Amino acid sequence: MSRAAMPPVSRDVLVHPDAGTLAHATAARLLTRLVDVQSHRSPVHLVVTGGSVGIATLEAVAQSPAHAAVDWSQVHVWWGDERFVPAGDPDRNETQAREALLDALGAALPTGNVHPVPAQDDDVTDPDVAADAYAGELAAFAAAGAEVPAFDVLLLGMGPDGHVASLFPGHEALGTVGRPTVGVEGSPKPPPRRVSLTFEAIAQAREVWVVAAGEEKAAAVARALADDPDTPAARVHGTERTLWLVDVAATGDVPTSEPDGTPEPTS
């Protein structure tokens, strides 16, 4: 993946007063970004995330009247990681995203534009099989010679340990190279079996947005922004922009691009 070898772009850190404000501001920023991209090209490829703020952001998108400004027929939805459990399980990021936003969009978002990670069933019996199938789906929508689409926005949550997607500190999945997806066994956070995009795949995104809220995330945020090599979140970058969207509780003495937390205009 040649784009992954490019030097990382600088990171912007935008601080919001609290988790609720963060979710609504991220939703507004996302809708603006989708409309802006659609004024230049289609389709748009969006990677969504789970977690409390990630799902709250999707709920805020559904609640916003501005979501009608997006041509959802030209938006493709992907996931950065998934819990390897049966379809419809409440632990699945897909299930939560459908309840928060995707079902509410109805016919505006074609079924074929939604690309969930294969769920556990009689044919897909382990995370590696699901990862291989998801890699094939990604490749089918990628440009010639690429393994994944050039995601326009890739949203990531971050855990208190600094993990992103299902790439956990010290886990062997961190070292996966030469492929866009990886099956994860023995995740330190339940459920233990998962599927994740790799760092190489994440690095193909035009914009990577890391969303984190809460005092329990503050130490990991500081480590990541200090480029701590043992913190997975420190390794994620977009090719055009890397954006950290956090609340006050998740920051310590981290320098910010916008001290008042007001979203800047999206170009």
Rank of each mutant, 00 (worst) to 15 (best):
E94V: 11
D121V: 09
A203L: 14
D71I: 02
P169D: 06
P188E: 09
S257Q: 11
A139P: 12
D12P: 03
A249Y: 00
A60R: 02
S52C: 02
T125S: 10
P43Y: 01
P118N: 02
L225Y: 05
S196A: 04
V210L: 12
P192F: 02
P149C: 01
P192S: 15
V254M: 09
V211K: 05
V61Q: 04
V61A: 03
K189D: 06
R235Q: 13
L155I: 06
H237C: 12
T32G: 14
M1D: 14
P8I: 11
S166N: 05
V177Y: 05
A104K: 14
A213F: 06
V35C: 14
H171V: 10
D128Q: 14
P160T: 11
H67G: 07
S73P: 09
H45C: 05
A203R: 15
A25D: 15
V9W: 02
L105C: 09
A140N: 07
V221I: 11
V37G: 06
V210F: 00
M1F: 08
E99A: 15
Q120F: 08
D71S: 01
A56N: 02
P116E: 10
G178A: 04
R11A: 15
L58P: 05
H67P: 09
S39W: 08
A173G: 09
L155C: 10
Q38A: 01
V208L: 04
V248F: 04
V246Q: 06
A218L: 07
P8N: 07
L138P: 06
L197F: 12
D71K: 00
P265D: 10
S73I: 08
A165E: 09
L46R: 02
V164S: 08
A150H: 09
Q96I: 05
R98P: 09
F168R: 04
D71R: 05
A25V: 13
G170L: 01
H171E: 09
P169E: 10
E94H: 11
T242N: 09
Q38N: 02
A135W: 00
V211C: 03
H67A: 11
A212R: 03
V44I: 13
H163S: 03
V184F: 00
K189V: 12
A68L: 15
V236M: 06
A23L: 02
G162D: 10
D126M: 00
A201H: 03
R11V: 14
E94N: 03
P118D: 04
R206P: 00
P65C: 05
F151P: 07
G214V: 11
A165M: 03
P90L: 02
H237G: 13
A69N: 13
Q74N: 13
T95D: 07
R223L: 13
D121H: 03
A150G: 08
E264C: 12
A25S: 15
P255V: 07
P188Y: 03
S39P: 02
R83K: 05
G54C: 01
V184N: 04
V13S: 03
G157N: 08
V246G: 10
G252N: 14
D12T: 13
H76R: 12
A130R: 07
R193W: 14
V37T: 14
L174W: 03
L101Q: 04
D103C: 00
A66H: 13
T266M: 10
G106L: 01
I202V: 15
A219W: 06
E200Y: 01
R241G: 11
S42K: 14
K189F: 01
S257W: 12
P263S: 06
T21Q: 11
